[in-house]
Amino acid sequence: MEYHNLGSTGTKVSELCFGTWRFGKESGDTVETDRDEAHELLDAAWEHGINFIDTANVYGTPHGTSEEYIGEWLDDHDRSDFVLASKVYFPFDGWGEPGPNDSGLGRKHVREQIEGTLDRLGTDYLDVYYIHRWDDETPIEETLDTLDTLVSEGKVNYLGASTMAAWQLTKALWKSEVNGFERFDVTQPLFHAAYRDDVADYLDVCADQELAVCPYSPLAGGFLTGKYEKQGGEVVGPEGSRADMDERFENYYVSERGWHVLDEIRAVAEELDATPAQVSLRWLIEQEALSCTPIVGARTTDQLEENVGATAIELSTEQRERIDDARYAEEGRRYGH
C-alpha cells in the first residue's frame, strides 16, 4: 500500500479509504454488517495498510452504530495510526423525534453532533469533518465560523464537503477566504468511471483549488464490479446484491452510458488479468488532475482484498482513454443515463 498527501494537506492517507456506511445498517430484517463482521473488516483493512476510515453520525440502525463499532475497535489500536472522517447534517435519531434544531448546519446542531461523534468514536479529535450536504436554511458564514472554531479547539484537523453543486463549493471557499475561516480541504462527491461528466464543474473546482477528492460509490453501487447483466431488459445480479436490497439501484446507478463503460472496463480487466472492480478503482486512483482516494465499502474480507488489488495494477494511457471514450457514441453524443 502506498500513501499520498490528502489533497494539499500534510496528512498522508492510503490509496483507498475504507467506508463504513453498512456497519449496523438494517435492510428489512437483515443487518448488513454486524459488530463482529465490522471488526473483522476493520482488521482486514488495517492489515492491508488502509489507514483512512470514513463514517458518519447517521450510519447504522440506530444512527451512531457505525461510529460505535469503530470506536470499540479503536480501543485495541493506536488512534494516531488512523485518519478518521465523519459527517454532520442529517437528523440524528438517537434522541427520538427530531426537533427543529436537530438537523442542518446551524451552530447548535453542529456543536451537539461533534460531541456525540467524538464520544462514540472514543477519540478527542477527527481528522476530517464533512458537511454531509449543503444547508439552504443556514448562512454558510455561520457554518464555516462554527467549523473554524472546532479546528481552533483541536476537535477537527481538516474540513470536508460532501455532495453539493460546484457553485456552492466555490461560494464556501470564497467565504472562507474573505472571512479568514478554515476552508474545505477534502470533498466527497459521487464520482465513478460512468459518472464523470455529470460532476465535471465540481471536479474542476477541486483541481484548481487542490482539494482532495474522496469519491463515494466509486463502483456505482457494485454495478462496475461486473456482477450484473442485462436479461430481457432487466438488470440481474447475485442474490443479496444491492439490486435486491435497494429499490433505487437501477435508477441511481444503471444507465446506457454505464453499460458501455462497463464493457470497456471488462476488456481492460481481461488485458491486465484483473477484475472490473480493480480497474474501476484504479481509474480513479490515477486521476491526473486530482488527488483522488476512492472510498470502498466491502461487505466481506474477500471483497476488500479484491478492492485492495487495485493498488497493485497500473493502467496505460491508452486504456484510460478507452474507458473515458466509452461514455460517448461514435458521433460524439454522450450516452444517457
Rank of each mutant, 00 (worst) to 15 (best):
D93K: 00
V151T: 09
D124C: 05
L147P: 10
P139A: 08
D78V: 03
T149H: 09
T143Q: 03
R120P: 07
T123A: 10
G116Q: 11
E72P: 09
G99K: 09
G106W: 08
N57A: 11
N157H: 07
E67I: 00
T163M: 13
K171F: 07
D81T: 05
G154C: 07
V151A: 06
V128I: 11
A85H: 11
P91T: 09
N101W: 13
S66P: 01
I114R: 05
L74N: 13
E72L: 13
Y129I: 00
N101I: 12
P100M: 05
Y130P: 13
T170I: 07
G154E: 13
L121W: 02
G122Y: 01
D145E: 15
K175W: 12
G104D: 12
R107Q: 15
H109S: 00
D102A: 10
I140D: 11
G99D: 11
I50Y: 02
E153W: 00
T61F: 01
F90L: 15
R79F: 10
H132W: 04
D135G: 02
L169D: 12
L144C: 06
A161E: 07
E112T: 10
W167L: 11
E142Q: 12
I50R: 05
L105K: 04
R133H: 11
W174R: 09
L173T: 08
E68A: 06
I114F: 03
T117H: 01
I53R: 00
T138M: 12
E97T: 09
G60L: 04
A85M: 12
V83S: 02
D54A: 05
A165Q: 15
T163S: 15
H63S: 14
D54V: 07
M164D: 07
T123W: 06
T55A: 09
G106Y: 02
D148H: 14
V83Q: 06
H109A: 00
E115W: 01
E72R: 11
E97F: 02
L84V: 08
V58M: 04
G71L: 06
I70T: 02
V151C: 15
Y89I: 07
P98L: 03
H77R: 15
G104K: 03
S86R: 01
E97L: 06
V128E: 06
G160Q: 09
D145W: 08
L74E: 14
N101S: 15
D136A: 12
L121C: 05
V88A: 13
G104S: 08
E137Q: 12
H63P: 14
E115Q: 11
R120C: 01
V58R: 05
S80P: 14
Q113P: 08
S66I: 12
D135H: 12
L84C: 03
T149D: 15
P139C: 07
W73V: 08
